[in-house]
Design a protein around this nucleic acid. Structure first.
Length: 869
RNA sequence: GCCGGGAUGGCGAAAUUGGCAGACGCAGCGGACUUAAAAUCCGCAGGUCCGAAAGGACUGUGGGGGUUCGAUUCCCCCUCCCGGCACCA
């Protein structure tokens, strides 16, 4: 046992027995690596299934502490469920398409595939070293044709169902690179590689998936996801942004002779409003600068054109900087008028920079008296402000007074509104919407903030979109039998950024499957969010080459029982995933409406008050932690330092404390285990001494605490604290069980013995409780305890509520709510008994001396409060 | 501006249903072991004040108010920090 090796901290080891994580972890690492079936989910199992999943990483080349924390949570849960007899599916994969591979390729002249696969190998090794229990036989690597061919297959299905379409859309274009830039490659409006070159907006034809078809269901079903954090549901609700309102047609006025001859004849401007009840207060129509009709109105009016261009520039700039919403409102009158269909009034048409083209119709009716923004704008340009709603109040006088403007509340009554005067707002909205519909100039409608999902990326490292362009047949999908469309890999990435296939004739030029004539391939690739929208289904049937997965198999495993990841994916990834599942359900591929039953979002790992980042120099490397303290310590600390849903403040000294704890556990078992003792496996003695009974109680209390937390709130930090308390308690008693010499008096104290069967129960349970959090040490100790069966699926310890129950309690006694003393009483003591004991207490007596008890508050098992006067 | 989350010792945190605030750990201090140190073990520890000590008094969960016998916990107002959304018509 006494070997002179170098301890993890680099200090020479002393001659007392010491836990060496490297020795233990290397030993078990080797065993686990040689057992490929170890963590395999059972195919045909009578057991209840449990699908636990952590968000798959992007293979950047190295895990960071955020990963370690995320996977430590999931791994603990997976191991807990195994120990509780479930058939656990716990897979892992790689979200391996995306921009960094292209950047790395340019920098190091390494092909993206090679760079990616070598990163995967590195990170997989790190995960294995950390001891995470993944079923690697189901590994999914999204950048391999095995996987992405099904992205292409799904894309064809979207086309078949009419849910994929092409539309012109804006992209960031760098004129120097002559290519498209991702949003994150645009820095302060300029190209990241050419800081002096302004990025242009170009319109390109792009592919969209019609997620808006599911907008309503995506919103509605959020109510069913009660296993999701409310925060995430709220974020998704806001993202979908459902808004009920009314579309109203304003006709352009042609009655004035000077307006004949320019502008579109018979044009109407559609506006969307949630407050059609205020339409009698509309004093202008405001158009977004990029509204199509503006171009027509400005066609023969260079002065207007110039002003509009300036408004467009202002909006763009604000959008780039990200403070649209902060910019000062500007506008310009077009000189034209539109007709309010409700009262026939002619009101001026303006163009304004606070109107967004991509929400609603890109045009509004401006009601300055009842909208903050319209009010601000009208003040600035001296437009008419006309009051049409009065606040409703029980107080007659208050109802009649003019409210401060703008008055935007809904609880009001219409005035100056023709036949609608006197109606309440809510009624007026219904009645007026119906009137508009009956007369053909509008209707009630619902608008969403959610847009269709643009999936085209003018990038190389992604799933090729399986479409062809034939001169004769137009846009033609690649036939299913020709999938996958393989991403060409023999290309010179350094000289072919963006859509590099353009320069690859052997990829681009093909034949049309319809007419056999020449055709060109689509050269765009898919957004990587496509990959992550359904990868968790592939895990259930990862090697299927006839379908993305087998429906029956997926039906067994789905929904995912627990999904764990960072809150940064609360919106995009998790909405796309829900959308994809609903689409697959409509295809008949799955039966579940939602992919994820329970979602857990863990907090960030921060250090020195900030997120870890290279620029701040506060990055903690998992490899270094493993080398210094071992994988168990790194994992345990990431669970111990904070509850998993809160941010974790990393402290190097904290992990040292965890390492000490693991060492104490090791020494406790090593010192006191007696597996060869015949009584070790025997029954507990019928009668336990008070001290041993206390230890037994503490044991059962600890099992209860840890078990309850796994089933409930997941505060693993307190679970680990509880195990520490058990260890401290047991250790103290165990030391006390040996004859100890009191150093000051020299007196030898005869210790009380812990019966071997009790020690065995304590040690076994402690190891089992530790197994989900620190698997290496737990396995080692399990073996040291002479246990033969696998710890991985050893039954989770059970507690006995009767044994966990305290027999005696210390009841605090308060006088007028202030703590004045404590009495020790049996746990089930009655009020009378406790009061009697309390009154017998000297301190209590002096505290109430000369006063009268007017009230006694007794909470059984909790406290006694005497109110005195 | 709107919607979340948070604020507790020197630090990370705990208190699960309104009932002893600070469990557990870090850092610190004292002691044991050692020639010495490291490692390990034992003990002390919110603050202020009184006391030689044992012990005791007061005070204390961002600030102010309220409900209650009793509030870290519930209600109202305010400050600061973090995250998300943001001219959404």
């Amino acid at each position: 046992m006494q070997e002179e090796t170098t301890a993890p901290g680099g200090n020479p080891r002393s001659n007392d027995e010491r836990y060496d994580p490297q020795r233990v972890e290397t030993k078990w690492f080797a065993r686990w690596q040689n057992d490929l079936e170890l963590y395999a989910a059972e195919a045909d199992s009578a057991k209840k299934k449990y699908y636990v999943l952590e968000m798959l990483p992007y293979p950047s080349g190295a895990l960071h502490m955020g990963h370690v924390r995320n996977y430590a949570i999931g791994d603990a849960l997976a191991r807990y469920m195994w120990m509780n007899g479930y058939n656990v599916l716990h897979p892992m994969g790689w979200d391996s398409f995306g921009l960094p591979a292209e950047n790395a390729a340019i920098q190091n002249n390494t092909p993206p595939r090679q760079w990616t696969l070598s990163n995967i190998a590195k990170m997989k090794a790190q995960m294995n070293r950390l001891g995470f229990a993944y079923d690697w036989s189901r590994e999914v690597t999204t950048c391999l044709p095995d996987y992405y061919r099904w992205n292409q297959w799904f894309f064809l299905k979207f086309c078949e169902k009419g849910l994929a379409y092409r539309k012109k859309s804006k992209v960031n274009w760098c004129p120097k690179c002559a290519t498209v830039l991702a949003n994150e490659q645009v820095v302060d409006g300029c190209c990241w590689r050419h800081e002096d070159t302004r990025v242009e907006q170009r319109e390109l034809e792009q592919w969209f998936l019609r997620i808006t078809k599911y907008a309503d269901e995506l919103l509605r079903d959020l109510d069913k996801l009660d296993g999701w954090p409310e925060k995430v549901r709220t974020m998704q609700r806001n993202w979908i942004g459902r808004s009920e309102g009314t579309l109203i047609d304003f006709k352009l006025d042609y009655s004035q002779p000077q307006h004949h001859g320019f502008g579109p004849a018979g044009a109407t401007i559609k506006v969307f409003t949630t407050r059609v009840d205020t339409i009698y207060g509309a004093t202008s129509v405001q158009l977004a600068p990029e509204h199509p009709i503006v171009a027509d109105l400005a066609a023969n009016n260079p002065e207007l054109r110039a002003k509009v261009d300036q408004l467009i520039a202002e909006q763009r700039k604000a959008k780039e900087v990200g403070d649209i919403g902060e910019i000062e409102k500007h506008g310009v009158p077009t000189g034209r008028y539109a007709i309010n269909p409700f009262n026939g009034e002619k009101i001026p048409v303006w163009v304004a920079n606070y109107i967004l083209m991509d929400y609603g119709t890109g045009a509004i009716m401006s009601v300055p008296a009842h909208d903050d923004r319209d009010h601000e704008f009208a003040k600035k340009y001296k437009l008419e402000i006309r009051l049409v709603v009065l606040p409703v109040s029980t107080d007659q006088e208050e109802t009649m007074t003019e409210p401060p403007l703008p008055f935007v509340a809904h609880d009001g009554m219409l005035i100056n509104s023709g036949p609608y005067s006197g109606m309440e707002c809510a009624d007026a909205i219904k009645t007026m919407s119906a009137f508009a519909e009956q007369n053909g100039f509008g209707k009630a409608t619902v608008t969403y903030r959610l847009k269709d999902w643009g999936i085209s990326r003018q990038r190389y490292w992604g799933t090729p979109i399986p479409m062809l362009y034939c001169e004769k047949d137009g846009i033609v999908p690649v036939p299913e039998k020709d999938l996958p469309v393989i991403l060409p890999e023999a290309i010179d990435i350094a000289h072919a950024l963006g859509s590099p296939f353009g320069g690859l004739p052997e990829f681009v030029n093909t034949t049309c499957p319809k007419c056999g004539g020449p055709a060109r391939r689509e050269t765009d690739t898919m957004d990587t969010f496509v990959d992550s929208s359904w990868y968790f289904y592939r895990y259930t049937d990862a090697h299927n080459n006839r379908a993305p997965f087998d429906s029956k198999t997926a039906q067994y495993w789905f929904p995912i029982d627990q999904y764990i990841g960072g809150v940064e994916h609360a919106i995009l990834h998790l909405i796309y995933s829900r959308f994809w599942t609903k689409f697959m359900r409509d295809l008949g591929l799955v039966t579940n409406d939602e992919p994820i039953a329970r979602l857990f979002t863990q907090g960030m790992v921060i250090k020195d008050g900030a997120k870890m980042s290279k620029s701040l120099g506060n990055v903690v490397s998992p490899d270094e932690m493993i080398a210094r303290y071992g994988a168990d310590a790194a994992r345990l600390y990431s669970l111990f330092a904070a509850p998993p849903d809160r941010d974790l403040d990393w402290q190097d000294s904290g992990i040292e404390g965890i390492q000490r704890f693991l060492g104490r556990v090791y020494r406790f078992v090593e010192t006191h285990a007696r597996p060869q003792d015949p009584n070790w496996r025997g029954p507990l003695p019928g009668q336990l001494s008070v001290s041993n009974r206390n230890l037994q109680r503490k044991l059962h209390q600890t099992i209860k605490r840890v078990t309850d937390d796994f089933r409930g709130r997941w505060h693993f930090n307190t679970c680990i604290s509880a195990i520490m308390e058990l260890l401290n308690d047991a250790n103290r008693r165990a030391l006390g069980s040996e004859d100890v010499q009191n150093p000051s008096t020299g007196e030898v104290v005869k210790g009380e013995t812990i019966p071997p069967a009790l020690m065995a129960e304590v040690q076994r349970s402690m190891v089992l409780l530790l197994a989900p959090f620190a698997p290496y040490l737990a396995h080692e100790l399990w073996e040291m305890l002479g246990e033969k069966g696998s710890l991985l699926k050893a039954p989770w310890p059970k507690y006995d509520a009767a044994l966990a129950k305290e027999e005696e309690l210390e009841i605090p006694v308060q006088i007028n709510g202030k703590l004045r003393g404590r009495v020790v009483v049996p746990a089930d003591a009655t009020e009378e008994f406790v009061v009697e004991r309390a009154l017998a207490d000297e301190k209590i007596q002096s505290a109430i001396a000369g006063k009268q008890i007017v009230k006694k508050i007794f909470v059984p098992g909790k406290l006694l409060n005497l109110v005195v006067k």
